[in-house]
Write a protein that binds this DNA or RNA. Structure first.
Lengths: 138, 138
DNA sequence: GTATTTGCAAAGTTTTTGCACGTGG
DNA sequence: CCACGTGCAAAAACTTTGCAAATAC
């Protein structure tokens, strides 16, 4: 039995097809809103409801099996917890650059430590402009 | 005529009482959701509608007279553009620590530059745990 | 067997929009 | 004057909830 299945059980939850499908969809999509997860799951099976997607995403997030961040102004975006990373989100073209946890921690760690603050790097999104949009902005 | 009034005019917009009231409310409140701004404006005058608050906040944000960030998972929070700062948001107690632009830029600037990315420091929120909540978490 | 989970439908919250009226310049 | 801005009400977008039926274990 895989690790995530044990984590579910350990926390007193049950293993259902819906939970498998949602987790698989998040891993497939990389970054996705609840709606996109729903659409992806639907491609494989009719057997799921949007409310279940919301409930499942929330549960998986609580268990630390997935993470969520806010890549756009509206709608949370979920992603696999596997490789923890932060995002640089371009407001111009809406593309996102992923930055490994290590480099972000190197940059932000010292400042955060000054305030006794422990950042959640998997949730971090830095908004701004990417190189090409910054150039076009002039 | 004050600077913000000229900026309105310069961009072809009109100076209305509603716009004055919304801007004043944001400056008074420090950080506020659209709903909170609406409530604050209402304390001074009945003469405003919630849609107008939304439209006005959007306009002032576009003109750079105010900024918005996402301090909670749901609902944008507006604040004065005067002293540009970033936020450290505690997920435990929901308190926020403000960090001046200079120190945040010192930390994040080099990493961002590697990616040719120009961060929007006034919009940046770093989620995580403050010292006391991190301690309580064990 | 039974406590958890799901589907469904309904309601809740937050934000946006169309349009006629009002008003700043 | 008249283009821009506002109020109002309705709709849209997104998320949560109650409950009976289904199901994991």
């Amino acid at each position: 039995m895989s690790d995530w299945q044990e984590r579910l059980r350990a926390s007193g939850h049950r293993l259902t097809p819906q939970r498998e499908l949602v987790l698989a969809a998040v891993e497939t999509l990389g970054h996705a809103t609840p709606d996109e997860v729903y659409a992806e799951v639907r491609r494989h099976s009719e057997a799921i409801n949007l409310s279940t997607v919301y409930r499942t995403l929330e549960l998986l997030d609580e268990l630390g099996l997935i993470r969520h961040a806010h890549l756009t102004d509206r709608a949370p975006t979920y992603h696999s917890a596997g490789h923890e990373h932060s995002h640089l989100v371009c407001r111009g073209c809406h593309r996102t650059i992923s930055v490994g946890r290590a480099s972000m921690e190197g940059a932000l760690g010292p400042l955060a430590a000054e305030h006794g603050f422990v950042p959640d790097y998997g949730h971090l999104s830095v908004f701004g402009l990417c190189a090409s949009c910054a150039a076009a902005d002039h």
